[in-house]
Amino acid sequence: MPTNRQIVLDNRPEAEATASNFKLVSADTPALADGQVLVRHHYLSLDPYMRGRMNDSKSYAAPQPLGEVMIGGTVGEVAESRHPKFKVGDPVVGMGGWQEYSVVDGNAPGLLRKVDTTHVPLSYYLGAVGMPGVTAWYGLTQIINPQAGETVVVSAATGAVGSAYAALAKARGCRVVGIAGGPEKCRYAVEELHFDACIDYREHGDVKAMAKALKEACPKGIDGYFENVGGYILDAALLRTNAFARVAVCGMIAGYDGAPLPLQNPALILINRLKIEGFIVTEHLDVWPQALQELGTLVAQGQLKPRETIAQGIEAAPEAFLGLLKGKNFGKQLVKLI
């Protein structure tokens, strides 16, 4: 069995996460028991939620245990199998974590799934046609539920979630406005992801400036807002909401280092009769097949063309992850392992 290089969480961040929180180790891959599958990972996914798991604090999921492999999505191929459903060479998606190989119980529901790479590249199953894409789908269709002609906005617009959100919303006839960092990302959002407008938060660094930019980009107000960031961007978006607007809260990356994120104008929730709902996409597995089918179709038809930022090698994962938290990635952040 092959030697397996792994990234474990060595210690918890004091405030901002650093590379010293992680440790690269090697372990022997155990022999397979009946029903188990050995997966060789081709790519591992880096996602903002992982930062919250590094803290030992109350959240929607248990903290990442110290000394154990960092949790995370993976795609790869079956390298060895003692399960009748999986054969060597099958492309698969799972939650193998930050390591080069994983041993998976082939009978456990939801742990490992074969995928079709005929029209959808393998790496896309960690982004546009994976958890981030389903996250965008759920927030848009199940919480915001827009009607044609409505204006919907998303922060972190050029990431894996934001790019899928744009394609899904445009398919429903919406005006779609993004918020992203830097002129290059905003240009990409409009020219390649087909946003109707994109606001550079680096040029609008406080509530007043962001609210003014949103007013210009959303002359009819905001009917639906998908939140990934929090902080002053959320305050500004709430100022521009229409009556009965819907807000899907997916993430609060501005607060992942422990800083509090108070709302400046909570009375807007009452004044505009807002619906604000947080969600965890893994709690809604019943809708994943429907979401993945639509997302896969959008990719196959060329309506969803996500960009990827790829770091090379397992040892590159910590720095790539820290870069993701600072917005240095362009599109979906992956680590290529082969």
Rank of each mutant, 00 (worst) to 15 (best):
N4L: 01
R5G: 01
E16C: 11
A17I: 15
A27G: 06
A31Q: 15
V37H: 03
R40Q: 15
L46C: 10
Y49M: 05
A62I: 09
P63G: 08
Q64S: 13
V75R: 02
A79N: 05
H83L: 06
P84H: 11
D90W: 02
V104N: 00
P109V: 04
S123G: 05
L126N: 01
V129M: 01
G139V: 01
N145E: 13
Q147M: 13
E150D: 09
A160K: 02
G162Q: 04
Y165I: 04
A167M: 09
R172K: 14
C174F: 11
A180D: 07
E184N: 15
K185G: 09
C186D: 11
V190C: 13
H194M: 13
D196M: 13
C198S: 14
H204E: 14
V207K: 14
V229K: 01
G231N: 07
I233N: 00
L239F: 04
N242W: 06
C250F: 00
I253E: 00
L263S: 09
N265I: 10
L268F: 03
I269N: 03
F279Y: 14
H284W: 05
W288F: 15
Q290D: 15
A291G: 04
L298Y: 04
Q303T: 11
R307P: 07
A311H: 12
I314E: 02
K332M: 10
K332E: 10
I338S: 14
